[in-house]
């Protein structure tokens, strides 16, 4: 593994992080709404009270000082105080993180498996009816708004059939006798949101999978294998598939940003207590520090994921040149 390649990628990521931080800072300085009125949620503030709030939130300084201060705070993982909850932003976000990770993890698994299967079938039968159907299905899934799918699933499985809970992560406030009961409870609540969010990202995976498989099919060693008389099934599964999975690694990383979109919609429909709903609620309540913090953390996660994907990709695919 070439250290220069890694270092260069790292450097690029760092610059990107800086750009994101800067955009983030300025974006939130120009938001509407008097921050004092937001914090105090009332109009009649005395000058002294305003001053004390100013000091508390650091509004009393010049723009560039605020920016430098902001940078320094970030380095000490200080994301400020939530307007709404009057608690450190990191704590507010941390409270919601696990729920989203749980949802996102299973949605990803669902999407990757389903996407890979559909993509593989499609590629293996390229040009035939089954290909068109599989591809059509992948594109169809892509075209369905996630929130709409969520609503339809709720209507059918929860309201009509009563098969799954309507929303939330557990039956609220229930004391679970055993850990197992707790896990089962979460599991039951997880099904519909996972399907909703998984479907939202699955279509893209299927299409990428198909494309990268078709790419691999043109490689020499596949032609060789074919000439040697291997069965098509074997060629697809043993020769083509492992190599075709590579581009998926990158796509999954790039998709992190897209997942947030799915998370906001899914969590809104299902009242799932995660980051997505927090972003939505923070926007509705104009809780800028929380929005800003969430926005930054999400962006940095995406950058990190991209970096890891780049490095992993370089590691896994010997064809990449480390120049």
């Amino acid at each position: 593994m070439n250290i220069n390649y890694v270092l260069r990628k790292l450097f690029h990521s760092l610059i990107t992080v800086l750009i994101v931080i800067t955009i983030n800072f300025f974006l939130f300085r120009i938001m509407p709404g008097d921050p004092f009125a937001m914090i105090a949620k009332a109009g009649n503030l005395s000058a002294e009270y305003k001053e004390s709030l100013s000091a508390l939130y650091g509004f009393d300084e010049a723009f560039h000082i605020q920016y430098l201060k902001y940078l320094r705070q970030l380095f000490s993982f200080d994301f400020g105080l939530s307007f709404k909850y009057r608690k450190p932003v990191l704590e507010v976000i941390g409270n919601r993180l696990v729920a989203t990770l749980l949802l996102a993890f299973f949605a990803q698994i669902f999407a990757i498996v389903a996407g890979a299967v559909i993509g593989t079938i499609s590629a293996a039968f390229r040009g035939r009816k089954i290909d068109v159907m599989a591809l059509g299905f992948a594109l169809l899934v892509y075209a369905i708004p996630a929130f709409w799918l969520g609503i339809v699933l709720v209507l059918f499985f929860s309201v009509k059939l009563g098969a799954f809970p309507l929303n939330g992560m557990v039956v609220a406030g229930m004391t679970h006798p055993t850990t197992w009961a707790y896990v089962m409870d979460v599991g039951r609540h997880l099904v519909l949101p996972v399907i909703t969010m998984g479907m939202a990202i699955m279509g893209g995976y299927a299409i990428i999978m198909r494309g990268s498989l078709l790419d691999v099919f043109t490689e020499d060693y596949i032609t060789t294998a074919r000439a040697k008389g291997f069965k098509r099934r074997d060629i697809v599964i043993h020769h083509a598939l492992p190599n075709a999975l590579l581009p998926m690694v990158t796509v999954i990383a790039i998709n992190m940003g897209f997942m947030i979109s799915g998370a906001i919609q899914t969590e809104t429909v299902f009242s799932w207590p995660g980051i997505g709903r927090l972003v939505y609620e923070a926007l509705m309540a104009r809780d800028y520090p929380v929005l800003q913090g969430a926005f930054l953390i999400i962006s940095i996660t995406v950058i990190l994921a991209n970096l890891i994907a780049d490095i992993l990709y370089g590691y896994l695919d010997p064809r990449i040149k480390y120049d």
């Binding site: 990770l101 749980l102 993890f105 850990t179 896990v183 492992p242 896994l316």
Partner: peptide
């Protein structure tokens, strides 16, 4: 190649473990 892929798989499994660890830490006493 295959070995590298299985490494990736292990990494994924570890991640899964961490995640499930996170969620179980939330369980009520």
């Amino acid at each position: 190649m295959k070995r590298k892929l299985s490494l990736l798989l292990v990494a994924l499994l570890v991640m899964a473990f961490i995640f499930s660890g996170c969620s179980s830490s939330q369980e009520p006493q």
